Simulated scan of single mutants.
Amino acid sequence: MARAADGRDNTGQARRPTALHARIQQDVESRIVSGEWPPGTRIPFEHELTAEYGCSRMTVNKALSELVRKGLIERRRKSGSYVRQPEVLSAVLEIHQLEREVRALGLDYDFRLIERVERTADDQDCRRLVLEQPGNILGLKGLHIAGQRPFCLEDRLISLAEVPLAQDADFSRNPPGSWLLEQVPWSAAEHRINARGADAHAARALDLAEGTPCLVIARRTWNANGSITQVNLTYPGDMHTLVAQFGPSLRTA
């Protein structure tokens, strides 16, 4: 809303001053979201923020408590408050756009295309896409970024027999997962979920030590004509949680 120079908004009403605890909260949150304070950073102690803002400890505590509630920081006994590792909760039986996952954390999103290769499917490609015979495919590798931190490594195959439009799509500007959901109808999908240590390529892309535990979601989607795409999504193990909700059925375990 536009503000006038005399402290009134464009309806003529006087502005309400921002409560100090809310300003402290906003200041700390902006440093976290911008990446200035990455996950694991210890934020200033309460007495330091009290001195910086010239306020009571109760005011600072109120601001930090709200940041804890939002999942941005965690308090450690006798150690202080630290920026939390972001964590995504995803439903196992749904296909999500990674951009939405990142923005749900309150972080800026970016995608970087690492590799794009058009080729005839080899034996491994045929197994991933469940192709009866080799055809032309598009291989894509890219990195999804949350704030300033690598969030997910994507390794995707697209069948050009089923999705010929992908041949001319600009995936350097539009992440392939989002593009496919918008452009290509699908009728069935399969998720395979594994925990594995980061290999050299994943470790380098995700800025991890080789062997760091990662969560890998292998997804294949298809329609009545055949496979559309297969993708392996590799997340650092501390950044993703899968959730399934279900009710009782006639069968029991």
Results as ranks from 00 to 15, higher is better:
Arg173Leu: 07
Thr252Gly: 14
Arg112Trp: 00
Phe151Asn: 03
Arg173Asp: 06
Ser172Met: 08
Ile24Ser: 03
Val88Asp: 03
Arg116Lys: 13
Arg77Asn: 12
Tyr82Arg: 02
Val68Asn: 08
Thr234Ala: 06
Ser65Thr: 12
Arg220Val: 07
Leu208Trp: 05
Ile32Phe: 01
Glu190Gly: 08
Ser227Ile: 05
Thr234Asp: 02
Gly226Leu: 03
Leu143Gln: 01
Ser65Tyr: 04
Gly106Tyr: 04
Arg15Met: 11
Gly40Leu: 06
Arg69Pro: 05
Glu132Asp: 13
Leu215Tyr: 00
Leu157Asn: 02
Gly80Arg: 00
Glu115Tyr: 13
Phe45Ser: 14
Ala253Cys: 15
Asp125Met: 07
His21Gln: 12
Trp186Ser: 06
Thr59Gly: 07
Ser187Arg: 12
Gly147Pro: 04
Thr41Tyr: 02
Arg119Thr: 12
Ala253Lys: 14
Pro185Ser: 01
Leu206Ile: 02
Thr41Pro: 04
Leu131Met: 10
Glu115Arg: 15
Phe111Thr: 01
Leu140Gln: 02
Pro150Ile: 04
Thr229Ile: 03
Trp37His: 04
Arg220Cys: 08
Thr221Cys: 11
Trp186Leu: 14
Ile145Ala: 01
Met58Glu: 06
Glu87Trp: 05
Val88Glu: 02
Leu157Trp: 02
Asp207His: 14
Pro17Phe: 12
Thr234Cys: 01
His96Met: 08
Arg220Thr: 02
Ala14Thr: 13
Asn61Thr: 10
Ala169Asp: 02
Pro175Cys: 02
Glu182Ser: 10
